[in-house]
Simulated assay, not measured.
Amino acid sequence: MAAAIALAMEDFRPLGSRPVQEATALEACLLRRDAFEVMASPGPDGVVFVRFLFNPDVCALSSPVLDAGATYAVDVKGGRILAVQ
């Protein structure tokens, strides 16, 4: 599970990602790894499904944010991402 989450997170929000200087508070928040909750569940044949859900409370945003997360299908044995939605 941990390996699948780490692989998906590195694709979703690579370490060292920084907002551009003119970024809004929302744009800067969306680049923060800690602004996303993570859920993972095992699937068939060694596949793990990893989902990132945006938590606006982390950045105290006043406007709603829709569709800021992603779901990954990760082949843990092969160390690769099979699909992203």
Rank of each mutant, 00 (worst) to 15 (best):
M1N: 12
A2Y: 08
A2V: 11
I5T: 13
I5D: 10
A6H: 09
A6F: 03
A6W: 03
L7E: 00
A8S: 10
A8D: 06
M9I: 10
D11P: 04
G16W: 12
G16S: 04
S17Q: 09
P19K: 12
P19E: 02
P19A: 09
V20K: 12
V20R: 13
Q21H: 07
E22L: 02
A23M: 07
A25M: 08
L26F: 00
L26D: 01
L26G: 04
L26E: 11
A28W: 02
L30D: 09
L31V: 00
L31H: 00
R33Q: 15
R33T: 05
E37A: 12
E37W: 03
V38D: 04
V38C: 04
M39I: 03
P44V: 14
D45T: 03
G46E: 11
G46P: 12
F49R: 15
R51N: 11
R51Q: 15
F52G: 06
N55I: 02
P56A: 05
D57A: 12
V58P: 00
A60Y: 07
S62L: 03
A68H: 01
A68T: 04
Y72F: 15
A73D: 10
A73K: 14
V74C: 03
D75E: 12
K77M: 08
R80C: 03
R80G: 05
I81P: 00
I81E: 08
A83E: 13
V84Q: 02
